[in-house]
Nucleic acid binder design. Structure first.
Lengths: 122, 122, 122, 122
DNA sequence: GTGGTCTAGACCACG
DNA sequence: GTGGTCTAGACCACA
């Protein structure tokens, strides 16, 4: 499922796209898995089916999912996409790191923040 | 100065806000320093003065600058704001880190990316 | 609705902000209630939609309302905001009280002014 | 003296006017007392003499001070003005009280806030 | 000269 | 139809 926030600056359809993109990229949703149908998700989120459809259309255009007429939408097995997403995130990682260093945060503190989750996340 | 990218999804005024926020947060712009006047920056960037004014208004609302009518806009000396910004960046750092780990990037690689700049920035 | 006074020193947008802030703080406007649309209010008050939009933007920045693009602006359920507003008013109350005492008004008279409305408001 | 705050929304001259008005109304400055000269105050506050002059002009127009050419500016003995100011403050007091009651503050708490300063201020 | 306000009207994204 | 952005240009108060 996806979490909607009406106070978020992003339009609803974009929140859905972002939500699924992240879940697919991180393999929370496995390749081949079926997404909820347009009507189903629309009624669950209490929003217009058109909005869902637009989100699915974009996810398909980006290659994250494939829609099979009459059957539903399924997660693609996209290694290339994961690579692309990884590249984007690494860039963001480097930028954030640089900004934090400029603010006086030490490399040691950043390393510590990476290591600290070690116990909980395997 | 600030770099505008018309292909960027963010509206112009937001690009200006983000640009100056970053420069102030990283002390590239020192407290007390004067920002270009509304009209000046507008003509340099070839956009409407209203757009600049909107950006400056938001920077003031966020506490980054103080605007003195008839004199100009000046960078605030904001330790508190830097703390705030640092918190925001650390949050982003953690989120990006989590997403990368979920994608199979190892902690070691992230740590390496942090250390690698060590020679250049000391 | 909001009352505009062109003889007021405050700019129009500020009068609108103050008017709605007061109504929301005093729960005359209940959380979830919809504010008039930008164009609607603009035509009712016979002023430019941009001016309304600026007022709404500020109300949102202060956390009083949430605006949903394409749907409208809605009053937030803000207990925290009411607390904030209460603090602001108490400060103003103390300052006014101090000034009146300095002018020779007795504490008894001020207390009387507070009690006098007792019949009407329970 | 008067306290200036460049981050205050009010223009500088207005801050000066408000500051002196308050001090005269509360008899911190006694009738007949001499105000600092335009040049003197201007250099103390490190602002343009024109700004001081404008403030003094307005204070004179409102009847709080009288300027004697070649001698200086002096506080008027203005009972009528104090009455006027008292009326304005009482109105503000009533409005603030009403707003606080609407927010659920009890009359008892307001009365307490009035009485509490009783020891310190005689 | 500075910033602040406001108008008039355009175009866009969203639902 | 909704709000969001931007332009063009006016007038004002202030320093």
């Amino acid at each position: 499922m996806v979490h909607l926030d009406y106070r978020d600056a992003r339009p609803i359809y974009a929140q859905i796209v972002d939500g699924y993109r992240e879940q697919i990229a991180s393999t929370v949703l496995q390749p081949g898995e079926k997404l909820p149908s347009v009507r189903e998700l629309a009624s669950e989120l209490a929003i217009n089916p058109n909005t869902i459809q637009r989100a699915y259309r974009q996810l398909e255009a980006e290659g994250w999912i494939a829609t099979v007429a009459g059957k539903g939408c399924f997660v693609c097995g996209g290694e290339k996409l994961q690579e692309q997403e990884k590249g984007r995130l690494l860039l963001e990682f480097d930028e954030t790191t640089a900004a934090l260093l400029a603010l006086g945060v030490t490399r040691g503190e950043l390393v510590w923040r990476i290591e600290k989750g070690d116990k909980g996340n395997a």
